[in-house]
């Protein structure tokens, strides 16, 4: 047993002397001194960093997953009307996803079905469909958007229009969600 004590003293780096009083293990683990209590060992630091990183990864995954869940739940399907209402090279106004969000559905000259938010990305005027040019035009400041992708091609707007997913099911047209 004595050899055990001497060994532990050697490990602690203390010279063996008669006056040396060994601190009990309980006080080493739970020191009364403020400094000892505040001391952060390397192992604790590494443990904190590892667990912290792990939690950060989990939180990121949870956020990504939550976003996808919310998006899935929030997309409501709205029937816009019979497909005959939207003739080739024609436009149809509707509100989606709430009655406060004006949108415009367009059947282009090529026959493609597209829909965008009607709110201009410059100063929120309502854009309209210019049949002759096959473009979406904002009358306030003459902003022009490409009808295929909603991208700004002329005027002050710099950001594309928010796109609404639209599809034809049988003889009817439905808005099924927003493209973010």
């Amino acid at each position: 047993m004595n050899s055990g004590i001497e060994k532990s003293i050697e490990i602690a780096g203390c010279a063996s002397c008669a006056s040396c009083v060994k601190t009990p293990q309980s006080l080493q683990d739970f020191p009364i001194e403020w400094e000892g209590d505040h001391y952060v060992s390397r192992r604790e630091m590494v443990k904190f960093l590892t667990l912290g990183s792990f939690l950060l990864v989990l939180a990121n995954w949870a956020t990504a997953f939550a976003r996808s869940m919310i998006r899935k739940d929030s997309s409501t399907v709205l029937r816009l009307g019979p497909a005959s209402d939207l003739a080739q090279n024609g436009a149809l106004l509707f509100r989606y996803p709430t009655p406060q969000d004006p949108c415009i559905a367009v059947r282009t000259q090529e026959g493609a079905l597209v829909a965008y938010s009607q709110v201009c990305t410059h100063l929120s005027c309502a854009v309209v469909y210019d049949k002759s040019a096959d473009q979406l035009v904002c009358p306030c400041h003459r902003g022009v958007f490409n009808v295929d992708r909603g991208a700004p091609i002329a005027g002050p707007p710099t950001r594309p229009l928010a796109r609404v997913k639209i599809e034809q099911r049988g003889d009817h047209i439905f808005a099924t969600g927003l493209e973010v």
Binding site: F30, I32, E33, W34, E35, D37
Partner: peptide, 8 residues
């Protein structure tokens, strides 16, 4: 509970 500490 290791609740009482002594300062330096």
């Amino acid at each position: 509970a290791d609740a009482i500490k002594k300062t330096p």
